[in-house]
Structure formats: structure tokens, C-alpha cells
Design a protein around this nucleic acid. Sequence first.
DNA 1: ACCTGAACACCGTTCAAGT
DNA 2: ACCTGAACACCGTTCAAGT
Lengths: 183, 183
Amino acid sequence: MRADARRNYERLLAAAEQAFTEYGADASLDEIARRAGVGSGTLYRHFPTRDALLEAVFGDSVERLCASADELAATLPAQEALVAWLLALVRHTTTFHGLASTLMACSTDESSPLYRSCHSISATMTALLDRAKAAGAVREDLAPGDLGALVHGIAMATEAAPGDPSFPERMLGLTLDGLRPRS
Amino acid sequence: MRADARRNYERLLAAAEQAFTEYGADASLDEIARRAGVGSGTLYRHFPTRDALLEAVFGDSVERLCASADELAATLPAQEALVAWLLALVRHTTTFHGLASTLMACSTDESSPLYRSCHSISATMTALLDRAKAAGAVREDLAPGDLGALVHGIAMATEAAPGDPSFPERMLGLTLDGLRPRS
DNA sequence: ACCTGAACACCGTTCAAGT
DNA sequence: ACCTGAACACCGTTCAAGT
């Protein structure tokens, strides 16, 4: 990549992260280009869609989040590892408004730039869930997709209930209790 | 109200219901005015905000939904009445895309035209919840606001998972199990 | 090869001019 | 009293013109 192109790419990424944090996932793309000191066409050249830009901004951190599951699995009992990772997932997908619903929407669309991130998330969750099932901590008949939907629902509810830092933990606690095997 | 004003009001209401169903809660207001055969200024005269229009379109059905709780409470055991009504609530708030998050956002904003509907919903839910607690079917420490958040989360997840009619019921089932008192 | 910014089609909202 | 539709400020996206 040419030097000026690379510089513009980096500037766009920084401006996008700032704008997404400030205004949410539907921040104005024009505003992002303006903040980066770049023509709007340049933004579209580097990132053809909003999802491509979101993926560039957040893809790495999603991969790190998924990688962290190995450590949790190695140090914690199955059930605690699952809960801890799901909490981290909710905190991560609520770093800015609208990210949770965006990730939810692309989970079935293989052509989306965010599909890779969605897939990593669901694969990681499934692995932790299987381990929790094997340990008898979660009922066998729980479909990974259903757990994913519940967690995304909690993430979206969290976005609507700001100012209560313990909210995600409490919601996850209430929900996870319902996933225990019947005694 | 003048005869032509009333006619325009009715036309706007019909066009809005159609557009909301077709395009979701963020349907173009301009398009709604056009469908109603009315200038855009007329729409704003009758409904100063999008929320005012949403309230006019859906307020009555929310009141009917809340009124139906009495019948459920009279004919069903406490736990079943709660579950049945929550399912009806989810089905109602997912009649078109974006309604659930709109209702969620206005639950704390007393100045919103939708606040009345929000309040009716939470009051009805609290009554059914208290009855379920009294019957020993739900744990005493469950805050009504937390149950509301979970249900809204399920509604938003439902919007993102179309084509599975049993989805809301399954999600509610999973969640409600977790709300049982510990044995 | 890459960038710029004008151009286009849209949207929400307001308001002067009409009846 | 009520309505209309032009006007304004925005937005996403494209593309001819520049370097």
C-alpha cells in the first residue's frame, strides 16, 4: 500500500473508533471522514460498507476476547468459566451503542464482513457451553444458538439501561440460573 | 376538530400503521405523509414527534393487552398467567421492527408520549409478578424492572431471529425457569 | 494508484404562503 | 384554523476530475 494510503487508513480507523464510541455504531460516515481529514470517497475506497469499517475497528479485540476463553477454561471450573466469559462478551459488545444488534444481525449472513467475528464468538461460546454441559452444570438440551440469543438480548437490554454497572452481571445471573439441569 | 383535519388524522394513522408494519418503527415520516396524501407539515401538526405517532397507532392495543391480564389472572394459576401474558407482550412488541427498543428507551422518560404505554405495561407486569411471588412460583427478590429488562431483551432478540415462531416461547421458558425459587 | 469534493437522492423539520 | 410544499440542514453513496 502506498504511504499516503496507509496513513489515511490509520487515520480513518482512529477517527472511526472515536466516533463509534461517541455516537454509537450508526455514527455519520461523513463525519468520520471529516475527522480523519479525508474525502468521503477515500473512506469508501478503504471500507466499502459500514460493517467493513466496524470489523476493521473491532475485529482484533473480538479475537483477543475469544482467545481469552482458553485461559478462563484452564483456570476456572466449567460453569464459572462460562459465566465469566459471557460477562466479558456482554461488556465488550456494549462498548458502544448499536454494536450488539449489529453483531446479532450478521450472525446468519456469511457475506458480511462481521461474519468472521460472529463465528468466532459463537464457536468460543459453544466450546465453553459444551464443557459446562459435560460438567453437569448446564442442561444438555440447551442449544448454543438459544444461549447466544439470550446473551445478545441481555446486551441490548444493557444498552438501554446505562448507569448501572452491575446490570449485565445481574441479568446473566438470573438467566444462567434457569439453565441449570432440573434436580 | 374540522372535518378535513379529522379526515387527514385518520388517513395519517392508517398510513403510519401500514408503513410501520412494512418498514419498522423508523419508517420515513415523509413517506407516511405521502401515502396519506397529505403535506409533511400536516403530519407534524397532528403528531409533533415520531413517538407521538407511534403512541397514536399503538396506544389502544397496549391498553387492550394490559386489560387482558385481568382475564388471565382470573382463569389461570399465577405462574401460568404471568408466562402467558409475557408471551403476549413479546408478540405484541415485535409486531414491527424497532418497537421493542423504542418502548425500552422511553420507560424512564416521563415526558415521552409513549410513557403512558410503558407505565401500563410495567404496572400490569408487576401485578402479575407479585401474584406469582405470593403463590411461591417466583423468587421474592426479583425486581420488576429486572424482569422487564429480560423480557425486553427477549423481544429484541426475537426481532433479530425471524422465521421461528416458537422462539419467544422458548426464550421465555428458559428465562422463567431461572426465576423459580431455589429448592 | 489514489485522493478530492461536487453531485445525487434521500431524510427530518420548519415555516411562509395560501385557503 | 388548517393545509401545502418549498426550503434548510443533514446523510450515504457515487464518480468525474485531478495528482
